[in-house]
Structure formats: structure tokens, C-alpha cells
Write a protein that binds this DNA or RNA. Sequence first.
RNA 1: GGCGCUAUCGUCUAACGGUUAGGACGGAGCCCUCUCAAGGCUCAAAUAGGGGUUCGAUUCCCCUUAGCGCUACCA
Length: 473
Amino acid sequence: MIRARFAPSPTGYLHIGSARTFIFNWLYTRKHKGTMVLRIDDTDRDRNTEASLKSIYDGLNWLALGWDEFYRQSDRLELHRKLAHDLLAKGLAYRDFKPAAAEYEEKAHGEGPWLCNPEMRALSPDESDRRAAAGEPFVIRFRVQREPVHEVKFNDEVYGPQSKLTADIEDFALLRSNSMPTYHLASCADDIDLRITHIIRGQDHLSNTFKHVLLFQAARAPLPHFAHLPLLIAPDGSKLSKRKHGPVVSVLTYRDSGFLPIAYINFLCLLGWSPKDNREQMSLYELESAFSFEGVNRSNAVVNFTDADPIDAKALWLNSQHLRTAPVRMLVPFVRQTLCGHGLQPYGDEAFFENVIDTIRSRFSTLLDFATKGRAYFSDDFEMDEKALEKLNAPGARQLLNELAERIANNSEFSEASVEAELRKLAAERGVKAGVLINASRAALTGQPVGPSAFAVFVCIGRDRVIERLRNV
RNA sequence: GGCGCUAUCGUCUAACGGUUAGGACGGAGCCCUCUCAAGGCUCAAAUAGGGGUUCGAUUCCCCUUAGCGCUACCA
């Protein structure tokens, strides 16, 4: 039984890279009928905030993929401490009484890597116990085996065989002087206790994994599978950060930009992974069945955005693809929600929505377009675009539209064909080009200079509103 | 500095030693057309550099360069 986990720390909004990690974990567990664990890594941290926890939930809920089990590390501190003390008792860890500030000094001056404080490492158990009992603060460090130097090895599902000399691994901290566990300790203790079989996470943890392997071995726990994912980076090659790159690094920005969750998921999957058969637009089911670590790339992927264009063009394209190919029924709630979110009270029932959406969706790329360019289809509360006004201002156009309104009102039939016949007849009688009248009516009915075939627009808007809008033009 | 990872069009990527180095986004153009999209077609655009190995390297090895990550009592 496969068990994987997504373990964000609530120190900010849900990051785009974290979202992808979550998605890959989810895809993998779903594909293998495994269990998806959501674990909030909130050990210590002055940086943890409820606001960011909420932001993570909001992002995850928007993705709407779900998870099977949930834990908070702050509820499990005793488990973490127990592992540290077990290792201490076995001599696999030791107390370091040197103040952090002093260590920092020493490390800063060193030429090579800092490995340990030899005096502390060599402290006898008795001496160590006595100083601890006397109330002296200490940090518990893992005792990395030095003699003989050996290689720590593991196989990464993405990066292949990995090895590192113990001579290059420092005696990392397990338990802080305030008795809070460090990330390494809490993470491994929980992964062991939760029987995690696959650790799928960002490549920034690849180097840390050697420490984790050491910890798993010291705890006599079976080694899980590791799969590290290439990082998502900014166009300048730097790490994506809110401070430097703004809101584009937050998942919620995409939600608020009118993305369909599936489109965003699809986009993220294509960053650092490929089905290798040239497919681009994929459904959740297709992603799930195609996903494998073999398809995961090893080099970092750039999220392509600029100040002027904060959303990756490919993401936008994928969104428009999903928008125009998704079953219309599935789109209705998204569109309705977007409209309401923009203060509109759209008229029309389910069938009306489906018809309108189906008519206009092929020229929209985000849900936001329904509230702006598509506004007039759902509400009488819309404004006339400047270019649309120009079309309306064509010589004689308004009068002809008024006249068209009367003809439609007097015709018992109301269909694309009947309206087209009526309009062309009127244009021919008055010696104007049909196109002028066609474009003017689109403008009058939708407030937009461009849009679907005008005759389809007539039917979409509906007979009563058509007459109303053409009369008052 | 030490250690680790990576390197194909501007971007996302395909090509498990032999291809005119493929696809997609974006860009340019054409067709279609009541406008705008969509759709169809065409074009420009890449193997970081240097050494090997091989009959043959994008592919395997080494070096250089560049980028990223780790090197915290952050995660």
C-alpha cells in the first residue's frame, strides 16, 4: 500500500511550486490506489501564521483534489522528542552545550564545511547528563559516523543513484535548545510513524535526503522511496519568491485570474513532467494514468511571466483550451460564481447559461472574460465599448436597428434563420451593406465590437431583450 | 569555499548512439469570414564550449563554463 504525503509549512500563501508537489503526490497515490496524507509542518516557527494556513487550505480546496489523512506536526511533538531522546540514549546523538552564537562565529571562520564541535561530540554521557541536569541549555545533534568514512547512498526515483561521503555531512541538529524539533527530526519521525512509503518533494531537499537516510537507519526504520522534483524558477533563473516576483507565485492569483482548476493543474503538470507523447491538454484522468517518475525531468523549469504579463502564456492557452472543450454543464457553476463575484445578478436558468456559454466560450481565455466581455449576455447591466460605439454610429445604423426591432417584434418566428432573413432584407431595401447592420446589431446587443456570429447572438440574448436593446439604441 | 544536482528553439518539452533534431506556447504570414476568436496551412527559432569513446554522438565519459540547491537551534 502506497502512502505519500504533502507537507507544507504555513509560513506564507500556497506557493505554485508547492501546489505542483501536491499535485504530483496526489497523482501518484491516486494512480496506485494509495493514501494521500496532508501534514502541516508547523514545528516551532515564529513564522507560522493562521492566515497562511488558511491560504494553503484555500489553494488546496480550489484545486479540489482532496486528501485522505490529515496531521499537524505541532500535535505530534512528543513523538519527535522521543526519537531524539532514543537516539541520545543509544549514543547515536549527543548534547551540544555550545551557544548558537558561538558556533556561528566558528562556522563563519572555517575554510571547509563545519562538521561538529569536537569537544561537545566527545563529551562523556555522564558529564553530558550532569550539565543537562544542572539546567544548562543544549541542542541535540545527530552523531554522524566519522570512522571509517563511508558513503551514504540511496536511489532517487527521478535523479537516480545518489551518494555522499559522511565526511561531507555535518552533525545536524535534531532538537533545539527550546526543545522544539528541527525540520529534519520532525519530518523523519513523522514519515516513519505515518508509514510513508514515498517521499515526493522539491529538489531543494535532495541534499538533505542524506541526513534523512541516516536518521531512518538510526531509527531502524525501512527506507521509503524518494522522488525529487525539479524546481520551478523565475524567468531570470532565480527562485520564485513573493518579495521579488509578487503575487504570481501564489496559487490564489491564478484562481482570481479566472483559471479553471483543471487547467491550472494541467499547466503545472507540464512543468517538469511530460507524458512524452506530445499531449498537452489533458484531463485529470489522463494525467493520473500517464503520470510516472520516469516522465519527470531533472532540470528546473521556468514559469514564464513578465511584469506586463504576470500569467504564463501557456497557462492561459491551456485555460482557454479547457474552457472551450469542457462539458458545458461543468462550466456553469464556475461562470455563475465569477459573475456573482463581480457584483452581477445574472438572469437565466441552467439551460440559458449552457447555451450562452457554449456560444461565447471559444473566444474567451479566462472565466473573468464572462464578467467583462460576456457581461451583456447575462445582465442588462453593461456598458458600451468605445469601438462598439463606432459601429453603432455608422450612418443610419441606429435607425435601421430601431426598424429591425419592429420587424422582429412583428415576426412570430425568432430564430437565427428568421433574424438573418429579416436583417438582410432590411439591408437590401435600404441599400446598405448587410455587414454594417450585422456589426451594429452585435454592438447594440452586447456592447462589444467583436464576438460570435451576430445571428447566434440574437438567439442567445433572447427575443424580448433583443427588441428592447435595439429599440433603445 | 565545500558538497550535491542540472544544461535541446525566447519558454515548456520529445528524441532510451543512426531523425531533414519532433511537438506545444508565444511571434510572423496565409486561408476561412458579418466582426473577433476558434480552426487549417506556412515560416523564423535550439543540442553552452572543449576534449575523448565510437563507423557514427543531443544521447556515454572527462574538463571548462553557467545556473540552481544544501552547507541554521528555517523548512
